[in-house]
Write a protein that binds this DNA or RNA. Sequence first.
DNA 1: TTGTACGCGTTATCAA
DNA 2: TTGATAACGCGTACAA
Lengths: 350, 350
Amino acid sequence: MEKDITIYDIARELELSPTTISRALNDHPSVNKNTKQRISEAAAQMGYRSNLFASNLRKQRTNTIGMIVPRLDSPFHSAVIAGIEKIANEEGYNLIISQSLETLHKEVANAKTMFDSRVDGLLVSLSFETDSLEHFEQFINRGIPVIFYDRVTEHKNCTNIIIDNLQAAYKATTHLIEQGCTNIVHITGNLKRNVYADRLKGYKYALIDHNLPFTESNVLKSQLTEEAGKLAAEQILAMNPLPDGIFVSNDTCAVSCLRTLKQAGISIPRDMAVIGFNNDLTSRVVEPNLTTINYPGQEMGEVAVRVLLMQMNGTGEKIPSNTINLRSELIIRESSLRGKASPKKKDILL
Amino acid sequence: MEKDITIYDIARELELSPTTISRALNDHPSVNKNTKQRISEAAAQMGYRSNLFASNLRKQRTNTIGMIVPRLDSPFHSAVIAGIEKIANEEGYNLIISQSLETLHKEVANAKTMFDSRVDGLLVSLSFETDSLEHFEQFINRGIPVIFYDRVTEHKNCTNIIIDNLQAAYKATTHLIEQGCTNIVHITGNLKRNVYADRLKGYKYALIDHNLPFTESNVLKSQLTEEAGKLAAEQILAMNPLPDGIFVSNDTCAVSCLRTLKQAGISIPRDMAVIGFNNDLTSRVVEPNLTTINYPGQEMGEVAVRVLLMQMNGTGEKIPSNTINLRSELIIRESSLRGKASPKKKDILL
DNA sequence: TTGTACGCGTTATCAA
DNA sequence: TTGATAACGCGTACAA
């Protein structure tokens, strides 16, 4: 366990000043080319490594991006994180990650850690429970940009990255109606969160615009997990009359629900048409294949971090738009096709 | 954008020395209780936050754990990361994450970043390409513990966390044989990696122990992706005679392969029995449900980080065992049950 | 129980 | 083009 080499060691070795060493290693223009060469060779040979703490301490900057997600083990968030890490890494930033596990108190604790770690920027997707943004004010007060994605909320100083959930849900519901469904159930998550509230609105407006009644009893609140899908299916089977269409707010839950219904003897899509949300791998595996909304997680991550980097390095100019909408699309598969359409036809993008 | 409050500011405010402030905030025993109380109140009121860099610089310790994974968007690695984050967070450590994207050069670059970031410990699952551990020597030389999990390699100073891949594959293959399969194909990944090499061995030994021939042509090398599953299925369909059993080294690939075979008119498990690896969600969704090996990702993450923490904080004593084996198990589902066994029976654990 | 003084390794500033 | 010096904020040996 040898001692670390510092720029002083190199300076002594080369009979130069530490200043020059520092400059050379940072490729400062005012250092002689030959000197630079000598220094970088010596540094490599001596096994020098820069001390980021000292540098951060001095520069008051960490080159670190913080991230708070509800859960790390979700296909959607994995995709987002993969996108973020890719860009952050390319741009020379470290990524610190923590999960709120859908609780407010963890989210608050995570925010504190991120703050103490002096992240240069923060990317957040809110937990189910979050109903106040107080724990993010500390960042905003210090000019540290905060960006919300997917599970967002309005804040005058923060950019939101989302898809048009209302429109996507509207399209999905309309598609069900066009397939002849007249009694459509919607399985949703925590309505505090924009994503679920907006999808509910889209569902509702589509019904109304097509002169179908909207009834509260057709909206099932759920945790949207695999387990919750089974429970929802049981609730649906107890309904009288049975619905003929189901729009679920994520694929995990939709797939589990679909399978439970099938096991109970319901024919999909003939008796009930089903639509999910996210385009997870499982939507392409379940039989019949699940109609769903394609939600570009990796792309969302890349956009989010790019915008964050702009704000971090920006000359202070605010980006005019406070909300960035990414394109999403309805992918029609067999689980919702009740017409004469061949079930073998290729995926159709709307 | 106010200026940061430091212990000096608090000291001035309370007419005490910075030393006392520092001690009080770190709950040092030799500070008067009342003084402590006053100080922590003032700190809270003034909006003080500790500067981790200065502290790290001084303490030569970062409270940060580094992690290098092949891909962030994989169900298995997501589960591992979730487990690691949970424990690390509880113990007050930050987590820095990067992905190698299965390439050596990225893994090397990531290792350098982790080293410069002065992580206190490192968790690694190796990329497909990695064939040298040189980039980890810098850590080991400085006494920074490195732990490999899942995709591991032998190193006299590093602990490995794995499951018994050979045994798991042996069990899976034996199960196929017991179900009457005599011509079994194995779809594997990059054989440089222990996980795939060991599973191949388990497959091979099971065949030999049951007096079945082992033929190279029955081993298909693959990227184990969704796409690769389709390709593998096509290769299998071109075989003559057709095999009657398939053991695949992950679920994503197994499911995709199974579906492609079904579409080509093969009956699963009657014509071909199929077994996967990992127990991903898709294995419970595909029809017929996939027999697979349960691979406890979250648990593996938790164990890995616990062992790492012990080594980081250990009094230098080495842990006797160099390899920690976690329990895995064969989950028998319909995709491999060819006997008279009811396909509706519950999952069977072996 | 409290305080003084210094060092951790780097970079910004000013001067040469 | 190079160097001397101070400062970033904290923790600790030593002194009181």
